[in-house]
Amino acid sequence: MTDRQKFLYFIALHRTGLWVTALSLLLLVFPLVENNPYTLGLTNLIAIHAIVVLGLNLFIGYAGQISLGHAAFFGLGAYGSAIACVTFGLDSWLAMLLVAGLVALVALLVGIPALRLTGHYLAMATLGLNFVFHTILLQWDQMTGGPSGFYGIPSLSLGSFAFDDELRLHYLLWGLALLSLLLCLNLVRSGVGRGLSALAGDEIAAAALGVDTRRAKVKVFVLSAVLASVAGSLFAHTYGFISPDSFGIFVSTDLVIMVVIGGMGSIWGSLFGAALITLLPEWMDLFETYKDFVHGGILVLVLMFLPQGLITGLLDLLRVQLARLRQKNVTA
């Protein structure tokens, strides 16, 4: 091999790692370029959403299922952390872990029966879960603060170093988002990930190849719930205040829209979807009132023209065109 070939081979072999490194470097220097706390606050929110959307994309895009209730797991994480830290005085990191474990258990108990359902029924079941959770948040006001929300959640800290301004939070939140990204990328590049893609493509074929389809679905559901829970805990500690409105069914549908925009079955697309839907309201004032209309409209358009999702759909088109082009060159 010539040096050039060696170099290209190295790039091809490590392209995922190189992309992650590039993104990490970009995020590392981002606050030097843009230090407006408001902007950093927005990108921090993107990081939190990205963690949820990564997990949800594994469930929707890879395992081929649907959940309209992930805001419930997000909320369980947030309220769990809030209650554990403020009401019971636990350490916030410990609380985050305990709550994530608890959410895993809840997801397991919900997932085992619910994932026997498919399609519309699964959508309804997860939607129902979200409704129940939202109602509990509103009604159980001694514990949750009811409709007026939960105040006074402390910032996360390491020793005496508190993550209490946007800059510090930027590094914490994006560090964890990148970690989640890396874990998800590893998963989809493994045999387990291929099994999941197979599951999304055709359940019978996947089973014939040795994929335990029922178990795989439940596992991914639990994994996505845990990621949502961690993101919820981070959300609570970042803002110090949470209210039931942040965890209603419209938040669940927004999360699904993020997955669809980014592209089903695209880990990188998840970041894009989370970023776009988080930023859209900032770009258009009129969005505030008609947010749900615009989100719904985007969803319908994407599903009509690129059912695989925006980024995945475009990439697929590109790959198909490239392959067709090469096919022509071969035959010519």
Binding site: G191, V192, R194, G195, S197, A198, G201, A206, L209, G210
Partner: peptide
């Protein structure tokens, strides 16, 4: 029952699911 979105190689690799390990 091929998986249209996966590459040809990945399609064949799904035939090795049993050997690829199943721990997430």
């Amino acid at each position: 029952k091929l998986f249209p979105r996966l590459s040809v190689l990945d399609n064949v690799l799904t035939g090795l699911t049993c050997e690829a390990g199943s721990s997430m």
